[in-house]
Design a protein around this nucleic acid. Structure first.
Lengths: 174, 174
DNA sequence: TAATTAATTGTAATAATATAACAATAATTG
DNA sequence: CAATTATTGTTATATTATTACAATTAATTA
């Protein structure tokens, strides 16, 4: 299993995440002879501000604010498409939002752990999940080509923060 | 594993699917003291025209056409919300579309097999997948509350229909 | 049963996300 | 440098979904 769940939900030196992501992006782009233009890099940079996904229109807002000029949707969507294509970011279908990929270099089918409390998202890739999915699909005669797996719940820190649903305690009524 | 993959992708007596779905819906509604009004039933009926999911605006179109009067978005979205709430239909996040649930009465976390060729969608529920997801999440300290699992690929009939991606055959160039 | 309340539907307006089409500009290649 | 290709700018619009409030219908209760 690869995962960034140990850092994503906790205090950490996020600057390192950002730096690593940008470095990997540059590598990947030069390997593929693709151009990491200023706009594309800015979008990636914004997505790596935190481990919380950003909607396209938030990106447009922030980019407009930081650049001083009005950035329009196609500009951002094109940058997002480029980054998606290269595997540098992912789109979360359940949130209509985008997030940086922490390990673009390792082949993986991804699987997202979305914390409903803090909004942070960790990415995992676990063989057990993939195998279960593929073999279940096979039993149904279905050939898997791609998967979308998005899990909603609570990350470790938020489990202690958030109101617990009161357990039924038989015989103990308050 | 429960699944409707054996029927969903093949010729079958679809009228039975429809009838069963409507019967289950009526049961569930009376059990929950919820009202299956004409609009709600029409929407459910439309979603059971086939095993292909339908977007909200397609439903609006079809409902407007069949009823002769202009049905507006909130009407349909309200019916969809009602049906979702009761577990009679599902929303597919990757398609922004809705589909009838073939087994609303059994508790299940669902898992969709979306055929990219014919567009039909089967629903499965497999313990192996759930267990893999939950245990992987646990290893990341994450408490799962709900899951979205949508698999894109080819159903059995379409596997024989569709162009195969040419396998690399070393030494055999054409 | 009439009066009251609650649930459902109608309607207008608009929000949020995403794309199409074409012009302008910048970068790369021959 | 000229020609080509890739990228960005711009206008317009498509698609999906929600808000807010009015009207109506059904259920409940006095």
């Amino acid at each position: 299993m690869i995962s960034n769940s140990t850092t994503a939900y906790r205090q950490h030196d996020h600057h390192r995440c950002l730096k690593a992501a940008l470095a990997q992006a540059r590598n990947r782009c030069s390997a593929r002879k693709a151009r990491l233009t200023p706009i594309r890099e800015s979008v990636l940079h914004l997505l790596w501000q935190s481990h919380r996904p950003l909607g396209a229109y938030k990106i447009i807002e922030q980019l407009s604010a930081s650049s001083g000029k009005r950035i329009l949707p196609p500009t951002v969507y094109r940058a997002l498409d480029f980054l998606l294509e290269l595997g540098l970011i992912h789109r979360l279908a359940t949130l209509n939002a985008y997030i940086g990929c922490p390990f673009p270099d390792s082949v993986h089918s991804d699987y997202f752990l979305v914390c409903r409390e803090c909004g942070s998202v960790a990415e995992c890739s676990a063989d057990s999940v993939n195998k279960a999915i593929v073999s279940t699909a096979e039993r149904a005669g279905f050939r898997v080509e791609s998967q979308t797996v998005e899990i909603l719940g609570l990350c470790t820190p938020c489990q202690s923060t958030v109101e617990q649903p009161a357990l039924e305690q038989p015989g103990v009524k308050q």
